[in-house]
């Protein structure tokens, strides 16, 4: 039996449906984490990502899962997706300044470039560091859908270029990973990333 993947459900700000569906497609064991108590039933954690930084963090506090989430992220392999990656940072600047989970020494800021924002669509990743997570998909395209980016200089796994502007598209620190793109929306290549995460 493989590991149980816990997909954290934090209210309106998280779209868990597509992620659960993609994990079921690759025959992973999935459990939706709805409360602090649910964390002990899972071996790995996925933090989904739809919504704004500020609302995501207030949901996490209101649901009373903040402490359990941080301690579990620090002790179990974790994958943050899009906003789920962003809230692993120290601070976010979407609708004011909000404290994140503080795992990565990073800030989340508006993407500044002349091309249309949100950055939306399939785009390449330029791998900077070998990792289990991105093994075998280095030359694939992934789906991006975001207006904010993680600014970090020390934990970069891959960069992506959007009309001359470079930003961090994947990040890692030990077994904690974050991807700005949506593996659940990136065809077969995205399913590969989930398979890699099962083996982390």
């Amino acid at each position: 039996m493989g590991p149980v993947i816990g997909v954290v459900n934090y209210g309106v700000a998280g779209n868990i449906f597509s992620i659960v569906k993609a994990l079921e497609k690759i025959d992973a064991r999935v459990k939706v984490v709805n409360s602090s108590g649910d964390f002990e039933k899972v071996d790995k954690i996925i933090i989904p990502g739809v919504g704004s930084f500020k609302d995501a963090m207030s949901e996490i506090h209101e649901d009373g899962i903040y402490d359990a989430l941080v301690s579990n992220v620090l002790s179990k392999p974790t994958l943050g997706i899009c906003l789920g990656m962003q809230i692993l940072s120290k601070i976010g600047y979407e609708f004011g300044e909000t404290k994140g989970l503080g795992i990565f020494d990073a800030e989340v800021k508006n993407i500044y470039c002349s091309a249309p924002i949100p950055h939306m669509g399939f785009n390449k990743i330029n791998v900077q560091k070998d990792s289990l997570l991105l093994r075998g998909v280095e030359d694939e395209s992934f789906y991006f859908m975001h207006s904010y980016e993680v600014v970090n200089y020390t934990d970069i796994l891959s960069l992506t270029e959007y009309e001359g502007h470079q930003f961090v598209s994947a990040i890692s620190k030990g077994n904690i990973y974050g991807v700005q793109f949506h593996p659940e929306k990136s065809r077969e290549a995205g399913l590969e990333v989930f398979k890699n995460f099962l083996n982390v």
Partner: peptide, 9 residues
């Protein structure tokens, strides 16, 4: 909606 779910959605 954009404040709650993010502009991109």
């Amino acid at each position: 909606a954009s404040e709650i779910f993010g502009s991109q959605s």
